[in-house]
Design a protein around this nucleic acid. Structure first.
Lengths: 212, 212
DNA sequence: AGTGTAAACTTTCCACTGTCAAAATAGAAA
DNA sequence: TTTCTATTTTGACAGTGGAAAGTTTACACT
Protein backbone atom coordinates (compact mmCIF):
# COMPACT_ATOMS: atom_id res chain seq x y z
CA UNK A 1 0.00 0.00 0.00
CA UNK A 2 2.46 2.60 -1.17
CA UNK A 3 -0.34 4.90 -2.23
CA UNK A 4 0.10 7.55 0.42
CA UNK A 5 -2.57 9.73 -1.12
CA UNK A 6 -5.19 7.36 0.17
CA UNK A 7 -4.01 7.50 3.75
CA UNK A 8 -5.72 10.77 4.73
CA UNK A 9 -9.06 9.36 3.66
CA UNK A 10 -9.29 7.28 6.83
CA UNK A 11 -8.77 8.58 10.30
CA UNK A 12 -5.07 8.52 11.09
CA UNK A 13 -5.67 6.70 14.34
CA UNK A 14 -3.20 6.34 17.10
CA UNK A 15 -1.63 2.96 17.68
CA UNK A 16 -0.89 1.55 14.34
CA UNK A 17 -2.62 4.07 12.18
CA UNK A 18 -4.47 2.82 9.12
CA UNK A 19 -4.55 -0.72 10.29
CA UNK A 20 -7.50 -1.54 8.08
CA UNK A 21 -5.76 -1.19 4.71
CA UNK A 22 -2.68 -2.81 6.17
CA UNK A 23 -4.73 -5.85 7.09
CA UNK A 24 -6.27 -6.03 3.63
CA UNK A 25 -2.82 -5.79 2.12
CA UNK A 26 -1.63 -8.59 4.40
CA UNK A 27 -4.62 -10.69 3.43
CA UNK A 28 -3.94 -10.21 -0.26
CA UNK A 29 -0.33 -11.22 0.22
CA UNK A 30 -1.37 -14.34 2.10
CA UNK A 31 -3.82 -15.25 -0.66
CA UNK A 32 -1.18 -14.82 -3.33
CA UNK A 33 1.61 -16.59 -1.48
CA UNK A 34 -0.14 -19.26 0.55
CA UNK A 35 -3.61 -19.85 -0.87
CA UNK A 36 -7.18 -19.42 0.23
CA UNK A 37 -7.16 -21.90 3.08
CA UNK A 38 -4.35 -20.04 4.79
CA UNK A 39 -6.28 -16.79 4.93
CA UNK A 40 -7.23 -16.61 8.60
CA UNK A 41 -7.77 -13.78 11.01
CA UNK A 42 -4.79 -14.80 13.07
CA UNK A 43 -2.32 -15.17 10.21
CA UNK A 44 -3.51 -11.90 8.80
CA UNK A 45 -2.96 -10.22 12.14
CA UNK A 46 0.47 -11.75 12.55
CA UNK A 47 1.50 -10.59 9.11
CA UNK A 48 0.39 -7.05 9.90
CA UNK A 49 2.16 -7.21 13.25
CA UNK A 50 -0.87 -6.79 15.48
CA UNK A 51 -2.67 -8.96 17.97
CA UNK A 52 -4.88 -11.78 16.80
CA UNK A 53 -8.12 -10.04 17.72
CA UNK A 54 -7.45 -6.81 15.88
CA UNK A 55 -8.81 -7.86 12.45
CA UNK A 56 -11.97 -9.22 14.01
CA UNK A 57 -12.65 -5.80 15.45
CA UNK A 58 -12.06 -3.99 12.18
CA UNK A 59 -14.01 -6.32 9.94
CA UNK A 60 -16.53 -7.78 12.37
CA UNK A 61 -15.39 -11.33 12.00
CA UNK A 62 -13.73 -13.43 9.38
CA UNK A 63 -16.58 -13.04 6.91
CA UNK A 64 -16.08 -9.28 6.99
CA UNK A 65 -12.36 -9.67 6.39
CA UNK A 66 -12.99 -11.88 3.41
CA UNK A 67 -15.56 -9.45 2.05
CA UNK A 68 -13.15 -6.53 2.38
CA UNK A 69 -10.40 -8.42 0.61
CA UNK A 70 -12.81 -9.47 -2.11
CA UNK A 71 -13.82 -5.86 -2.57
CA UNK A 72 -10.21 -4.91 -3.12
CA UNK A 73 -9.90 -7.86 -5.47
CA UNK A 74 -12.77 -6.58 -7.58
CA UNK A 75 -10.96 -3.29 -8.03
CA UNK A 76 -7.97 -5.12 -9.48
CA UNK A 77 -10.29 -7.33 -11.49
CA UNK A 78 -12.05 -4.33 -12.98
CA UNK A 79 -8.75 -2.76 -13.95
CA UNK A 80 -7.69 -5.96 -15.68
CA UNK A 81 -10.76 -5.77 -17.88
CA UNK A 82 -10.34 -2.07 -18.54
CA UNK A 83 -6.68 -2.50 -19.42
CA UNK A 84 -7.42 -5.29 -21.85
CA UNK A 85 -10.21 -3.32 -23.48
CA UNK A 86 -7.98 -0.29 -23.79
CA UNK A 87 -5.66 -2.21 -26.07
CA UNK A 88 -8.18 -2.91 -28.82
CA UNK A 89 -10.08 -0.85 -31.34
CA UNK A 90 -13.71 0.18 -31.39
CA UNK A 91 -15.12 -2.99 -32.88
CA UNK A 92 -17.78 -4.28 -30.44
CA UNK A 93 -16.80 -7.92 -30.81
CA UNK A 94 -13.16 -7.07 -30.26
CA UNK A 95 -14.09 -5.20 -27.14
CA UNK A 96 -16.12 -8.02 -25.66
CA UNK A 97 -13.37 -10.52 -26.27
CA UNK A 98 -10.89 -8.09 -24.76
CA UNK A 99 -12.69 -7.92 -21.43
CA UNK A 100 -12.93 -11.69 -21.51
CA UNK A 101 -9.17 -11.86 -21.88
CA UNK A 102 -8.78 -9.48 -18.96
CA UNK A 103 -11.14 -11.67 -16.97
CA UNK A 104 -9.06 -14.78 -17.56
CA UNK A 105 -5.73 -13.03 -17.06
CA UNK A 106 -6.96 -11.95 -13.67
CA UNK A 107 -8.16 -15.46 -12.80
CA UNK A 108 -4.83 -17.01 -13.68
CA UNK A 109 -2.78 -14.25 -12.06
CA UNK A 110 -4.74 -14.43 -8.79
CA UNK A 111 -6.43 -17.82 -8.60
CA UNK A 112 -6.93 -17.82 -4.84
CA UNK A 113 -8.29 -14.29 -4.85
CA UNK A 114 -10.54 -15.20 -7.75
CA UNK A 115 -11.85 -18.17 -5.80
CA UNK A 116 -12.52 -16.00 -2.77
CA UNK A 117 -14.32 -13.34 -4.79
CA UNK A 118 -16.64 -15.79 -6.44
CA UNK A 119 -17.33 -17.83 -3.36
CA UNK A 120 -21.10 -18.11 -3.30
CA UNK A 121 -21.47 -16.53 0.13
CA UNK A 122 -19.10 -13.66 -0.59
CA UNK A 123 -20.46 -12.77 -4.00
CA UNK A 124 -24.03 -13.25 -2.80
CA UNK A 125 -23.59 -10.65 -0.11
CA UNK A 126 -22.05 -8.19 -2.56
CA UNK A 127 -24.57 -8.82 -5.32
CA UNK A 128 -27.60 -8.48 -3.08
CA UNK A 129 -26.27 -5.56 -1.07
CA UNK A 130 -27.99 -2.28 -1.89
CA UNK A 131 -24.86 -0.31 -0.95
CA UNK A 132 -22.47 -2.10 -3.33
CA UNK A 133 -22.68 -0.46 -6.75
CA UNK A 134 -22.24 -2.43 -9.96
CA UNK A 135 -18.96 -0.65 -10.50
CA UNK A 136 -17.56 -2.27 -7.36
CA UNK A 137 -18.01 -5.62 -9.06
CA UNK A 138 -16.71 -4.54 -12.44
CA UNK A 139 -20.18 -5.16 -13.77
CA UNK A 140 -20.34 -1.66 -15.21
CA UNK A 141 -17.49 -2.57 -17.55
CA UNK A 142 -19.42 -5.57 -18.74
CA UNK A 143 -22.57 -3.52 -19.22
CA UNK A 144 -20.86 -0.82 -21.24
CA UNK A 145 -19.11 -3.33 -23.43
CA UNK A 146 -22.31 -5.23 -24.11
CA UNK A 147 -24.57 -2.32 -25.03
CA UNK A 148 -23.92 -2.57 -28.80
CA UNK A 149 -25.39 -6.06 -28.74
CA UNK A 150 -28.59 -5.25 -26.89
CA UNK A 151 -31.52 -5.86 -29.21
CA UNK A 152 -34.25 -3.22 -29.23
CA UNK A 153 -36.90 -3.70 -26.57
CA UNK A 154 -34.90 -6.35 -24.75
CA UNK A 155 -33.39 -6.23 -21.31
CA UNK A 156 -29.62 -5.60 -21.45
CA UNK A 157 -29.19 -8.21 -18.74
CA UNK A 158 -29.77 -10.93 -21.33
CA UNK A 159 -26.66 -10.24 -23.36
CA UNK A 160 -24.68 -9.36 -20.26
CA UNK A 161 -25.56 -12.68 -18.69
CA UNK A 162 -24.68 -14.58 -21.83
CA UNK A 163 -21.24 -13.03 -21.95
CA UNK A 164 -20.57 -13.19 -18.23
CA UNK A 165 -21.75 -16.79 -17.96
CA UNK A 166 -19.58 -17.94 -20.82
CA UNK A 167 -16.43 -16.29 -19.54
CA UNK A 168 -16.94 -17.20 -15.91
CA UNK A 169 -17.66 -20.81 -16.72
CA UNK A 170 -14.60 -20.94 -18.92
CA UNK A 171 -12.47 -19.48 -16.16
CA UNK A 172 -13.73 -22.07 -13.74
CA UNK A 173 -12.89 -24.92 -16.12
CA UNK A 174 -9.47 -23.45 -16.77
CA UNK A 175 -8.61 -23.16 -13.08
CA UNK A 176 -10.03 -26.64 -12.53
CA UNK A 177 -7.33 -28.00 -14.82
CA UNK A 178 -9.75 -29.25 -17.43
CA UNK A 179 -7.47 -28.08 -20.23
CA UNK A 180 -4.29 -29.46 -18.69
CA UNK A 181 -1.74 -27.72 -16.54
CA UNK A 182 -1.06 -24.03 -16.93
CA UNK A 183 1.17 -23.11 -19.83
CA UNK A 184 3.08 -19.82 -19.73
CA UNK A 185 2.91 -19.61 -23.51
CA UNK A 186 -0.89 -19.76 -23.45
CA UNK A 187 -2.07 -18.26 -20.17
CA UNK A 188 -5.60 -18.04 -21.54
CA UNK A 189 -5.68 -21.77 -22.08
CA UNK A 190 -5.34 -23.67 -25.35
CA UNK A 191 -8.87 -23.13 -26.64
CA UNK A 192 -9.76 -19.64 -25.53
CA UNK A 193 -10.24 -18.20 -29.00
CA UNK A 194 -12.44 -20.93 -30.50
CA UNK A 195 -14.60 -21.05 -27.41
CA UNK A 196 -15.07 -17.30 -27.35
CA UNK A 197 -15.98 -17.51 -31.03
CA UNK A 198 -19.48 -18.24 -29.77
CA UNK A 199 -19.69 -14.52 -29.05
CA UNK A 200 -19.22 -13.77 -32.73
CA UNK A 201 -22.84 -14.83 -33.06
CA UNK A 202 -23.93 -11.76 -31.15
CA UNK A 203 -25.53 -9.21 -33.43
CA UNK A 204 -24.63 -5.55 -33.29
CA UNK A 205 -27.79 -3.48 -32.87
CA UNK A 206 -26.34 -0.17 -31.77
CA UNK A 207 -23.28 1.83 -32.80
CA UNK A 208 -20.18 0.77 -30.98
CA UNK A 209 -18.76 2.80 -28.14
CA UNK A 210 -15.33 4.23 -28.52
CA UNK A 211 -14.90 5.36 -24.93
CA UNK A 212 -12.08 3.88 -22.88
CA UNK B 1 -28.93 -46.36 3.32
CA UNK B 2 -31.82 -48.78 3.13
CA UNK B 3 -30.42 -50.35 -0.02
CA UNK B 4 -29.46 -53.70 1.42
CA UNK B 5 -28.49 -55.03 -1.96
CA UNK B 6 -25.43 -52.83 -1.89
CA UNK B 7 -24.23 -54.14 1.45
CA UNK B 8 -22.54 -57.32 0.23
CA UNK B 9 -20.42 -55.32 -2.15
CA UNK B 10 -18.18 -54.14 0.66
CA UNK B 11 -16.76 -56.34 3.32
CA UNK B 12 -19.39 -56.68 6.05
CA UNK B 13 -16.89 -55.73 8.68
CA UNK B 14 -17.33 -56.07 12.36
CA UNK B 15 -18.09 -53.02 14.38
CA UNK B 16 -20.44 -50.86 12.45
CA UNK B 17 -20.38 -52.51 9.08
CA UNK B 18 -20.60 -50.33 6.02
CA UNK B 19 -19.62 -47.20 7.83
CA UNK B 20 -18.27 -45.59 4.70
CA UNK B 21 -21.57 -45.18 2.84
CA UNK B 22 -23.25 -44.26 6.12
CA UNK B 23 -20.77 -41.42 6.56
CA UNK B 24 -21.36 -40.18 3.01
CA UNK B 25 -25.08 -40.29 3.63
CA UNK B 26 -24.62 -38.32 6.84
CA UNK B 27 -22.47 -35.80 5.02
CA UNK B 28 -25.07 -35.30 2.32
CA UNK B 29 -27.75 -34.77 4.94
CA UNK B 30 -25.62 -32.20 6.72
CA UNK B 31 -24.98 -30.38 3.44
CA UNK B 32 -28.68 -30.28 2.64
CA UNK B 33 -29.87 -29.33 6.10
CA UNK B 34 -27.09 -27.18 7.48
CA UNK B 35 -24.91 -25.94 4.63
CA UNK B 36 -21.35 -26.34 3.46
CA UNK B 37 -19.64 -24.73 6.43
CA UNK B 38 -21.23 -27.22 8.80
CA UNK B 39 -19.78 -30.21 6.99
CA UNK B 40 -17.01 -31.28 9.36
CA UNK B 41 -15.47 -34.59 10.24
CA UNK B 42 -16.83 -34.39 13.75
CA UNK B 43 -20.39 -33.50 12.88
CA UNK B 44 -20.41 -36.17 10.23
CA UNK B 45 -19.14 -38.71 12.71
CA UNK B 46 -21.66 -37.66 15.36
CA UNK B 47 -24.50 -37.96 12.88
CA UNK B 48 -23.39 -41.48 11.96
CA UNK B 49 -22.94 -42.35 15.62
CA UNK B 50 -19.21 -42.97 15.60
CA UNK B 51 -16.18 -41.29 17.02
CA UNK B 52 -14.73 -38.23 15.34
CA UNK B 53 -11.66 -40.07 14.13
CA UNK B 54 -13.60 -42.70 12.23
CA UNK B 55 -14.28 -40.60 9.10
CA UNK B 56 -10.71 -39.41 9.05
CA UNK B 57 -9.63 -43.03 8.94
CA UNK B 58 -12.01 -43.97 6.16
CA UNK B 59 -11.43 -40.98 3.92
CA UNK B 60 -7.89 -40.02 4.89
CA UNK B 61 -8.79 -36.59 6.19
CA UNK B 62 -11.43 -34.01 5.59
CA UNK B 63 -10.39 -33.50 1.97
CA UNK B 64 -11.08 -37.14 1.29
CA UNK B 65 -14.48 -36.93 2.93
CA UNK B 66 -15.39 -33.95 0.81
CA UNK B 67 -14.17 -35.70 -2.32
CA UNK B 68 -16.24 -38.79 -1.54
CA UNK B 69 -19.35 -36.71 -0.96
CA UNK B 70 -18.72 -34.77 -4.14
CA UNK B 71 -18.41 -38.02 -6.04
CA UNK B 72 -21.82 -39.08 -4.78
CA UNK B 73 -23.10 -35.63 -5.69
CA UNK B 74 -21.93 -36.06 -9.25
CA UNK B 75 -23.97 -39.23 -9.53
CA UNK B 76 -27.10 -37.34 -8.58
CA UNK B 77 -26.05 -34.48 -10.84
CA UNK B 78 -25.66 -36.80 -13.79
CA UNK B 79 -29.07 -38.31 -13.20
CA UNK B 80 -30.61 -34.86 -13.14
CA UNK B 81 -29.26 -34.18 -16.62
CA UNK B 82 -30.26 -37.59 -17.91
CA UNK B 83 -33.77 -37.25 -16.53
CA UNK B 84 -34.22 -33.83 -18.10
CA UNK B 85 -32.93 -35.06 -21.44
CA UNK B 86 -35.22 -38.05 -21.31
CA UNK B 87 -38.24 -35.78 -21.35
CA UNK B 88 -37.56 -34.16 -24.73
CA UNK B 89 -37.50 -35.32 -28.31
CA UNK B 90 -34.56 -36.00 -30.59
CA UNK B 91 -33.93 -32.42 -31.68
CA UNK B 92 -30.29 -31.65 -30.81
CA UNK B 93 -31.01 -28.13 -29.60
CA UNK B 94 -33.83 -29.39 -27.42
CA UNK B 95 -31.53 -31.96 -25.94
CA UNK B 96 -28.79 -29.48 -25.10
CA UNK B 97 -31.21 -27.15 -23.42
CA UNK B 98 -32.65 -30.09 -21.52
CA UNK B 99 -29.37 -31.02 -19.89
CA UNK B 100 -28.91 -27.35 -19.07
CA UNK B 101 -32.25 -27.39 -17.28
CA UNK B 102 -31.19 -30.50 -15.38
CA UNK B 103 -27.95 -28.75 -14.49
CA UNK B 104 -29.76 -25.79 -12.99
CA UNK B 105 -32.42 -27.87 -11.27
CA UNK B 106 -29.64 -29.73 -9.51
CA UNK B 107 -27.90 -26.52 -8.53
CA UNK B 108 -31.04 -25.04 -6.99
CA UNK B 109 -32.10 -28.30 -5.34
CA UNK B 110 -28.68 -28.85 -3.75
CA UNK B 111 -26.88 -25.52 -3.59
CA UNK B 112 -24.43 -26.51 -0.86
CA UNK B 113 -23.59 -29.77 -2.58
CA UNK B 114 -23.18 -27.93 -5.85
CA UNK B 115 -20.80 -25.50 -4.21
CA UNK B 116 -18.79 -28.35 -2.73
CA UNK B 117 -18.58 -30.22 -6.04
CA UNK B 118 -17.33 -27.22 -7.96
CA UNK B 119 -14.93 -26.04 -5.32
CA UNK B 120 -11.71 -25.51 -7.23
CA UNK B 121 -9.68 -27.89 -5.13
CA UNK B 122 -12.29 -30.66 -5.19
CA UNK B 123 -13.06 -30.46 -8.89
CA UNK B 124 -9.39 -30.04 -9.74
CA UNK B 125 -8.53 -33.32 -8.06
CA UNK B 126 -11.33 -35.13 -9.85
CA UNK B 127 -10.66 -33.55 -13.23
CA UNK B 128 -6.95 -34.25 -13.19
CA UNK B 129 -7.22 -37.71 -11.66
CA UNK B 130 -6.53 -40.48 -14.15
CA UNK B 131 -8.78 -42.87 -12.24
CA UNK B 132 -11.91 -40.72 -12.34
CA UNK B 133 -13.70 -41.35 -15.66
CA UNK B 134 -15.64 -38.62 -17.43
CA UNK B 135 -18.83 -40.45 -16.56
CA UNK B 136 -18.18 -39.87 -12.86
CA UNK B 137 -18.42 -36.15 -13.56
CA UNK B 138 -21.43 -36.36 -15.83
CA UNK B 139 -19.19 -35.14 -18.59
CA UNK B 140 -20.12 -38.09 -20.78
CA UNK B 141 -23.71 -36.82 -20.87
CA UNK B 142 -22.47 -33.44 -22.05
CA UNK B 143 -20.27 -35.02 -24.68
CA UNK B 144 -23.00 -37.21 -26.09
CA UNK B 145 -25.45 -34.35 -26.21
CA UNK B 146 -22.99 -32.07 -27.97
CA UNK B 147 -21.83 -34.44 -30.71
CA UNK B 148 -24.39 -33.23 -33.29
CA UNK B 149 -22.84 -29.77 -33.09
CA UNK B 150 -19.24 -30.79 -33.57
CA UNK B 151 -17.99 -29.33 -36.84
CA UNK B 152 -15.93 -31.64 -39.03
CA UNK B 153 -12.23 -31.66 -38.23
CA UNK B 154 -12.69 -29.79 -34.99
CA UNK B 155 -12.11 -30.98 -31.46
CA UNK B 156 -15.40 -31.84 -29.69
CA UNK B 157 -14.07 -30.11 -26.60
CA UNK B 158 -14.76 -26.76 -28.24
CA UNK B 159 -18.52 -27.12 -28.36
CA UNK B 160 -18.57 -28.95 -25.07
CA UNK B 161 -16.72 -26.14 -23.38
CA UNK B 162 -19.00 -23.53 -24.89
CA UNK B 163 -22.08 -25.27 -23.56
CA UNK B 164 -20.61 -26.17 -20.20
CA UNK B 165 -19.18 -22.71 -19.64
CA UNK B 166 -22.45 -20.99 -20.42
CA UNK B 167 -24.53 -23.19 -18.16
CA UNK B 168 -22.08 -23.26 -15.28
CA UNK B 169 -21.62 -19.52 -15.34
CA UNK B 170 -25.35 -19.05 -15.40
CA UNK B 171 -25.77 -21.38 -12.44
CA UNK B 172 -23.19 -19.44 -10.50
CA UNK B 173 -24.94 -16.15 -11.16
CA UNK B 174 -28.28 -17.65 -10.24
CA UNK B 175 -27.03 -19.00 -6.90
CA UNK B 176 -25.28 -15.71 -6.28
CA UNK B 177 -28.65 -14.00 -6.28
CA UNK B 178 -27.93 -11.88 -9.32
CA UNK B 179 -31.46 -12.42 -10.65
CA UNK B 180 -33.19 -11.79 -7.34
CA UNK B 181 -34.29 -14.27 -4.71
CA UNK B 182 -35.38 -17.76 -5.65
CA UNK B 183 -38.88 -18.03 -7.02
CA UNK B 184 -40.69 -21.38 -6.79
CA UNK B 185 -42.61 -20.51 -9.94
CA UNK B 186 -39.39 -20.08 -11.91
CA UNK B 187 -36.74 -22.32 -10.35
CA UNK B 188 -34.54 -21.85 -13.41
CA UNK B 189 -34.48 -18.12 -12.87
CA UNK B 190 -36.35 -15.43 -14.77
CA UNK B 191 -34.14 -15.32 -17.86
CA UNK B 192 -33.07 -18.90 -18.39
CA UNK B 193 -34.67 -19.28 -21.81
CA UNK B 194 -33.42 -16.07 -23.44
CA UNK B 195 -29.93 -16.63 -22.12
CA UNK B 196 -29.82 -20.20 -23.36
CA UNK B 197 -31.02 -18.93 -26.72
CA UNK B 198 -27.34 -18.29 -27.42
CA UNK B 199 -27.08 -22.03 -27.96
CA UNK B 200 -29.53 -21.78 -30.84
CA UNK B 201 -26.60 -20.39 -32.78
CA UNK B 202 -24.89 -23.75 -32.68
CA UNK B 203 -25.01 -25.46 -36.07
CA UNK B 204 -25.98 -29.09 -36.46
CA UNK B 205 -23.28 -30.93 -38.39
CA UNK B 206 -24.19 -34.51 -37.65
CA UNK B 207 -27.49 -36.38 -37.38
CA UNK B 208 -29.02 -36.14 -33.94
CA UNK B 209 -28.83 -38.98 -31.49
CA UNK B 210 -32.05 -40.53 -30.33
CA UNK B 211 -30.58 -42.63 -27.54
CA UNK B 212 -31.71 -41.95 -23.98
C1' DA C 1 -9.67 -74.31 21.29
C1' DG C 2 -5.94 -71.31 20.76
C1' DT C 3 -2.99 -67.99 18.39
C1' DG C 4 -1.77 -64.35 15.40
C1' DT C 5 -2.83 -60.80 12.21
C1' DA C 6 -5.19 -57.18 9.99
C1' DA C 7 -8.67 -54.01 9.89
C1' DA C 8 -12.09 -50.94 12.08
C1' DC C 9 -12.79 -47.98 15.52
C1' DT C 10 -11.96 -45.32 20.04
C1' DT C 11 -9.39 -42.59 23.07
C1' DT C 12 -6.33 -39.08 24.06
C1' DC C 13 -3.73 -35.31 23.00
C1' DC C 14 -2.01 -31.29 20.26
C1' DA C 15 -1.96 -27.09 17.31
C1' DC C 16 -4.85 -24.01 15.27
C1' DT C 17 -9.13 -21.51 14.43
C1' DG C 18 -12.99 -17.74 15.35
C1' DT C 19 -15.36 -15.36 18.88
C1' DC C 20 -16.09 -13.08 23.04
C1' DA C 21 -15.35 -10.22 27.36
C1' DA C 22 -12.42 -7.53 29.89
C1' DA C 23 -8.48 -4.80 30.41
C1' DA C 24 -5.03 -1.70 28.70
C1' DT C 25 -3.66 2.05 25.72
C1' DA C 26 -3.53 6.27 23.05
C1' DG C 27 -5.29 10.46 21.25
C1' DA C 28 -8.81 14.06 21.45
C1' DA C 29 -11.67 17.01 24.04
C1' DA C 30 -12.87 19.38 28.25
C1' DT D 1 -4.84 17.62 34.14
C1' DT D 2 -8.98 14.88 33.67
C1' DT D 3 -12.35 12.59 31.03
C1' DC D 4 -13.94 10.28 27.13
C1' DT D 5 -13.95 7.36 23.21
C1' DA D 6 -12.14 4.37 19.89
C1' DT D 7 -8.41 1.22 19.14
C1' DT D 8 -5.83 -2.62 20.40
C1' DT D 9 -4.27 -6.31 23.54
C1' DT D 10 -4.84 -10.05 26.62
C1' DG D 11 -6.86 -14.12 28.07
C1' DA D 12 -10.18 -17.51 27.86
C1' DC D 13 -13.42 -20.75 25.48
C1' DA D 14 -15.49 -24.15 22.22
C1' DG D 15 -14.80 -26.17 17.97
C1' DT D 16 -11.79 -27.92 14.25
C1' DG D 17 -8.39 -31.45 11.78
C1' DG D 18 -4.74 -34.46 12.66
C1' DA D 19 -1.49 -37.81 14.82
C1' DA D 20 -0.47 -41.56 17.96
C1' DA D 21 -1.58 -45.27 20.70
C1' DG D 22 -4.82 -48.46 22.49
C1' DT D 23 -9.10 -51.52 22.03
C1' DT D 24 -12.26 -54.39 19.79
C1' DT D 25 -13.69 -57.44 16.16
C1' DA D 26 -13.33 -60.71 12.30
C1' DC D 27 -10.86 -64.05 10.17
C1' DA D 28 -7.06 -67.41 8.84
C1' DC D 29 -4.28 -70.83 10.41
C1' DT D 30 -2.58 -74.30 13.37
Amino acid sequence: MSDLSRAPLTKPSHHHGNLRPALIEAGLAILIEDGLDKLTLRRCAARAGVSHAAPAHHFDGVDGLRAAIAEEGFRIFRNYMLDARGNVGPDPHERVKAICRGYIYFATDFPALFELMFNIKVIYDMVTSPVVPDSALGYDVLRDTCTPFVAPDTDPILVETQVWSLIHGYGTLLLAGRFGGSNPDAPLGPIFDPVMALLDQLTVHQPGQTGA
